[in-house]
């Protein structure tokens, strides 16, 4: 059993200026997940008649991307390739102080406590992250051939769960890794070709319009990414953009 000191960001709503609150929590076991530890805290807060700490979660198995906290200054905590829901309390020591903050970016406004609004990502996807498909009968299984390296590369980019850790960890609050992963995934597949140039222009413009920062290739995004999406995707995005400019694609 561990006892931890928690310093948690509390904010009533998006207008509230917010503050840190300190809680001492005991009864934590090493096999609890970080979110289960917060559940334990919330049960106690509710019993005392206080407002529980709001945070997002859904699948609790690292695939939905809704959980995301900055734990002691690191997005999803210090473990690599891990989402907050998969972070276990055995990585902490009895008596530790843990500072828990929400993702911080102008484009991700805090809604309440540790919950932020990540719909900016949805708008980036909507701006161009689709492929036009032929309607009509179901195509033959192997009618469109995709080589293994291309399939692998698309799959690697597609593992992005849109959690926003890249933005949270980036000293520039840039959404380049997310946007680049979405662009790269579709750019390499035969189905994505029709909108190839238009897509990169639109998604980049939307990324800028949301108020994210300017990528300077620091690389913290890659380290924070629970799916270990490579910054090679960012180079691909730049290449796609340059190629679309040179081809004179409509924007």
């Amino acid at each position: 059993m561990m006892t931890l000191n928690l310093e948690i960001w509390r904010q009533k709503n998006s207008q509230d200026s917010g503050r840190f609150a300190t809680y001492q929590l005991s009864g934590i076991t090493p096999d609890m997940s970080f979110l289960e530890m917060l559940d334990l805290l919330n049960e106690q807060l509710i019993k005392k008649g206080e407002a529980p700490v709001e945070f997002d979660s859904d699948c609790r198995e690292g695939i939905c991307g809704s959980c995301g906290l900055v734990i002691n200054g690191q997005a999803h905590g210090k473990e690599m390739a891990t989402t907050t829901c998969e972070l276990y309390m055995r990585h902490f020591q009895d008596g530790d102080t843990i500072v828990i903050e929400p993702w911080r970016a102008k484009a991700f406004p805090v809604l309440r406590d540790l919950c932020v609004d990540r719909t900016a990502f949805d708008r980036i996807i909507a701006a161009g992250g689709y492929t036009s498909a032929k309607s009509g009968p179901h195509p033959d299984g192997n009618a469109i051939l995709i080589s293994k390296p291309v399939a692998d590369s698309a799959m690697e980019s597609a593992t992005c769960i849109g959690c926003g850790a890249c933005v949270a960890a980036c000293p520039n609050a840039s959404a380049s890794l997310f946007t680049a992963a979405k662009i790269s995934q579709l750019a390499v597949l035969p189905q994505g070709q029709v909108e190839r140039g238009r897509r990169v222009f639109r998604m980049v413009r939307q990324m800028d319009a949301e108020g994210f920062g300017n990528c300077t290739n620091i690389g913290e995004c890659r380290a924070a990414c629970p799916k270990e999406i490579s910054i090679d995707n960012i180079a691909t995005m730049k290449r796609e953009y340059a190629a679309a400019l040179l081809r004179g694609d409509e924007s």
Binding site: N72, G73, Q74, K78, V99, E220
Partner: peptide
């Protein structure tokens, strides 16, 4: 952030 720490990586 009140605390920010680099996560290293590749």
């Amino acid at each position: 952030y009140r605390v920010w720490r680099s996560k290293g990586g590749e």
